[in-house]
């Protein structure tokens, strides 16, 4: 079955969507990601959608679900590389993805994730 590869990098998971994301594929990705997050106890998930030129309401909702699931499993989600046309479509559809962090490119997304995780470490240090 067709799958989107999920890469593990230290404490983060990377996903680059480079094919057309149809409904079944999105659901499979959601399952894979949750499994991987809990197996590796990852702290962050970065989803790169720069190659995606169509996002419908279902995909948008699935992305929001992935973020919510990761949060429950204690991992931050960053969505990077959304194209202008896609952003406009999402807003027109009313999908503003509250609670999902966004970044312009993978580099900034990684910085954001590291910051999020780093802050938590600091907090722990403070607590100790």
């Amino acid at each position: 079955m067709e799958r989107i590869p999920v890469l593990k990098l230290d404490q983060f998971l990377l996903v680059t969507i480079q094919v057309e994301l149809h409904d079944q594929l999105a659901l499979t990705l959601q399952d894979d990601l949750t499994t991987m997050v809990s197996r590796h106890s990852s702290r962050g998930v970065l989803i790169d959608i720069s190659a995606l030129d169509i996002v419908d309401s279902f995909i948008g909702r699935t992305l929001a679900h992935i973020a919510a699931l990761s949060r429950i499993l204690d991992a931050a989600t960053v969505l990077v590389g959304m194209r202008p046309a896609v952003a406009i479509t999402m807003v027109e559809l009313g999908l503003t993805l509250p609670g999902v962090s966004t970044a312009l490119n993978v580099e900034r997304g990684m910085t954001l994730l590291r910051e999020a995780v780093g802050n938590e470490h600091d907090d722990e240090d403070d607590a100790e």
Partner: peptide, 12 residues
């Protein structure tokens, strides 16, 4: 608000 939401989706 729409414009701001779209910009946020792009990470700005």
């Amino acid at each position: 608000i729409k414009t701001i939401a779209a910009a946020r989706l792009m990470g700005a």
